[in-house]
Nucleic acid binder design. Sequence first.
DNA 1: GCTGCAGTTGCAACGACTCGCATTTGCAAC
DNA 2: GTTGCAAATGCGAGTCGTTGCAACTGCAGC
Lengths: 142, 142
Amino acid sequence: MACENETAVVLREAGQKVTPQRVHILCEVRHAGVHITASRLIDELRVSHPFIDASTVYRTLASAADLGLVYETDMGSGESEFEWVGKDRHHHLICRSCGDVESLDNSYLDGMATLLYEEAGFQADLGHFAIFGVCKGCQTKA
Amino acid sequence: MACENETAVVLREAGQKVTPQRVHILCEVRHAGVHITASRLIDELRVSHPFIDASTVYRTLASAADLGLVYETDMGSGESEFEWVGKDRHHHLICRSCGDVESLDNSYLDGMATLLYEEAGFQADLGHFAIFGVCKGCQTKA
DNA sequence: GCTGCAGTTGCAACGACTCGCATTTGCAAC
DNA sequence: GTTGCAAATGCGAGTCGTTGCAACTGCAGC
């Protein structure tokens, strides 16, 4: 399976041991294509790889996030959501009234990151943000 | 107690029932002066008001956050931190290397909020943010 | 002051996630 | 192919936080 080989390479390049558990977990995140919660991932892995323990899933996701291989984001559902770090970085605007989730271009946060670096010397991690608020449609309802 | 009266007024003005539990919980948050975790709050209340249940604390904090009376922020400790919404709005820069927490002026995020409104029509809640990254001192160590 | 009702509360159970530890295992060195 | 060791894993216990429900209560109306 190409994905599993690629994932193994990514892990090795990150200086990590390549275990079957990790390969399967991270492949599942890559295959999800969009955000996936830990509990959804655990459910899916329970079917396809029942030998993998839930604590292993949490640890693998946490270390992958530390390594910059996945984004971990609080989208307001009460559970962290995970996404493979791809080429297309983006953020989200989440309406707390209607629950709508919109993609947000990088430039808004990149601009701020640049300022933070130039003015405060701080190198911000702004990989994947969720910004809560009220969308255009819900403002006109009030 | 002035604080309790003020807190009762704030609750009433927010259209909420004024219960002894809520008054005590929110007074404790106001008195904390700085961020306080839910479990720290629960411990303090257990001493001063042992009849208040932990689930009531969580519910009161959640509804106060919804009403905009307190900020709830994930500062990376594994526990949400709460702070009474005061006049002086600020954000934080948190270094993931040394753990240092710096205050951040409003203007960085306010600028972005303005752009989001003007360009996307989105009214962002940017009350109290924690931005993770690497501080100036830890960058030069690498 | 009493009443009724919608909202709040305490309790116990539960969900999402973390931690300690004994055992297993990836992999570098031989 | 074997060995040793540091890291990974499964398991069970635990933490932080949520939820359902019966009982309680703030407060508007009388």
